[in-house]
Design a protein around this nucleic acid. Structure first.
Length: 262
DNA sequence: ATGGTTGCCTCGCAA
């Protein structure tokens, strides 16, 4: 990696308290410049800010007790821009934070899961995606390099899961969810992973159950979506499978991209 | 095969 490049990653850690040792180990070895984290599962009181500062990162977080929770980490200071996704004052779920750092505008997203798909959770997911589309559209007008990074809880294409038939009807693979993700991308965003990888069956999540990791039965639901000004600088991308193999791992693993320096 | 696993200030819920 050249020092003329900047590395941005996203990782659903499934509890920042349970995963702190993994996170610090990964920050020390992978050395990302900017990180979006999801599923912190804590309020700010329980957030290990001192440990993250000791690892060399500034941070900003939006948390809640027990569920959800997102954060931005950066080697540079972070200017906080949004602590929630605009468009619904009554939405109290901590699923979005946005800041400016390292000359980039970065959003950390924990998109609603939406299951069971016949419950009120699915329309909440679709409404959340519509709000995200509107906000993503407004971000394009800024003409800044924008990266919307996170756990989208959407499988974009059949080749992004081990068995499309097994996912039929699931909120992560329902046509409405996939169409909403396409609408977001068609605004002018680039899926950083797919910009460099056409091969099928590359995953970012493996269920804890049924030996999914051991048998590589996963899905690709963690994405980095880049505005044109960011995509013009895109140099590489990938999925770091290593942390998923550690003892007591998160069920997700980091997805990353590298941009040329401005 | 309505199972199985993880994390939460837990005794059910969310993923």
């Amino acid at each position: 990696m050249s020092s003329e490049e900047i590395t941005i990653a996203t990782w659903n850690v499934n509890s920042i308290k349970a995963r702190l040792a993994h996170l610090v180990k990964w920050l020390d070895s992978f050395k990302p410049d900017v990180v979006a984290l999801q599923e912190l599962k804590t309020t700010e009181e329980g957030f290990p800010g001192l440990e993250i500062q000791a690892a060399g990162y500034h941070w900003a977080m939006a948390g809640q007790k027990s569920y959800n929770g997102v954060a931005l980490l950066s080697k540079d200071p972070i200017e906080l821009l949004e602590e929630a996704l605009p468009g619904d004052e009554k939405d109290e779920q901590a699923r979005y934070i946005e800041g400016r750092t390292s000359g980039l505008r970065v959003g950390a997203i924990y998109l609603p899961n939406g299951n069971p798909a016949d419950s009120e959770k699915f329309p909440y997911k679709l409404a959340w995606m519509e709000r995200l589309q509107h906000h993503a559209k407004s971000l394009l007008a800024s003409e800044e390099p924008v990266l919307l990074c996170g756990d989208y809880n959407v499988i974009p294409e059949p080749e992004d899961c081990y068995d499309p038939a097994a996912w039929t009807g699931d909120a992560l693979f329902r046509p409405e969810s996939r169409a909403a993700l396409r609408r977001l991308i068609y605004l002018g965003y680039t899926d950083a992973f797919r910009a460099f990888h056409s091969e099928p069956h590359r995953y970012s999540f493996w269920d804890y159950q049924g030996g999914a990791w051991q048998n590589d039965l996963g899905i690709r639901i963690d994405h980095l979506l880049l505005s044109p000004q960011a995509a013009d600088r895109l140099r590489d991308s990938g999925i770091d499978r290593e942390p998923r193999g550690w003892q007591k791992a998160s069920d997700h693993t980091p997805v990353w991209c590298r941009l040329a320096a401005a």
